[in-house]
């Protein structure tokens, strides 16, 4: 990678609330995701961590009855601002999902090209970007001879890296990962974690995980959430050794969750 630390942007959440109908899933969270760092969000199931990241790229509002209030700022720009186009927010803030979800009818190449084609990229430029994205996702060497094979013919770990390549292709500034390795085996998980390390050279990365070891391995900072509230955020080392809140300590030492 030649470019270093230029594109990443800082994400700041201010008083963020998210609802599913009447249920209040995220309660007034203030949080900052620093550029070129990996921020992990940990917490027990149902604590609102996935909902929180889905608010960042405004995917939350796609679910029926879901809404969010508060602000999410990308550097200075409020992505919930009145003149903001949702589509452009999602191009700038990419997302990788829990379950690998390549488009089942598309080839490996077309999967990566899918987002680019939406913006009208064609021809040689398209091929270059696809190749660069696959290299970026550490998948190029494995698939370069069979780009026409269906995306779903790959293994689960490869599929997830294909989805990462697909996200990289549209050149985001922030990448949200919602438990990206929870459906994968340990080896594939390790590959994803290595990839996260590389990607932070260039992007702001937020990773939701229920696996505390994973957070300890990849994250610079770790945030702990409980019942929709942010309990604390600190350097990963402090969270796992000397957290300031007793609930965090109980969680990371396995007393609940």
């Amino acid at each position: 990678m030649t470019e270093v630390a230029t594109k990443a942007k800082r994400v700041t959440l201010g008083g963020l609330n998210a609802y599913y109908g009447d249920s209040h899933a995220v309660k007034g969270v203030d949080l900052e995701f620093a550029p070129n760092q990996v921020t992990a969000i940990i917490g027990p199931s149902g604590c609102g961590k996935s909902t929180l990241v889905r608010c960042v790229n405004r995917m939350h509002e796609e679910l029926p009855g879901a809404r969010a209030t508060g602000s999410v700022r990308l550097d200075e720009l409020d992505v919930y601002g009145p003149s903001i186009d949702v589509v452009s927010v999602r191009r700038t803030i990419g997302m990788v999902f829990q379950r690998p979800n390549p488009f089942p009818t598309m080839s490996i190449f077309d999967n990566v090209a899918a987002g680019l084609r939406l913006t009208g990229t064609r021809g040689v430029k398209l091929r270059e970007r696809v190749e660069r994205s696959l290299i970026g996702a550490g998948l190029w060497e494995e698939v370069k001879d069979r780009l026409d094979a269906p995306g779903i013919s790959l293994s689960g770990g490869q599929q997830q890296r294909l989805c990462i390549a697909r996200t990289l292709a549209v050149e985001p500034e922030v990448i949200l990962m919602d438990e990206p390795a929870s459906a994968l085996d340990p080896i594939a998980t390790l590959r994803i974690e290595e990839l996260v390390e590389e990607l932070k050279q260039r992007y702001t990365i937020v990773i939701v995980t229920h696996n505390m070891q994973q957070a300890a391995r990849v994250a610079d900072k770790t945030a702990f959430m409980l019942s929709g509230e942010l309990v604390e955020i600190d350097s990963t080392e402090r969270i796992f050794t000397t957290p300031s809140d007793s609930r965090t300590e109980e969680y990371v030492t396995g007393k609940f969750g």
Partner: peptide, 27 residues
């Protein structure tokens, strides 16, 4: 059509119509 595929398209910055074209109709 799995919600996964629709969300994948939306997260790439697809409009409703583009989401239908890339995720819903092929499936």
């Amino acid at each position: 059509v799995p919600q996964d595929h629709k969300e994948a398209a939306l997260a790439l910055g697809a409009t409703r119509w583009e989401m239908i074209r890339t995720a819903v109709l092929p499936y």
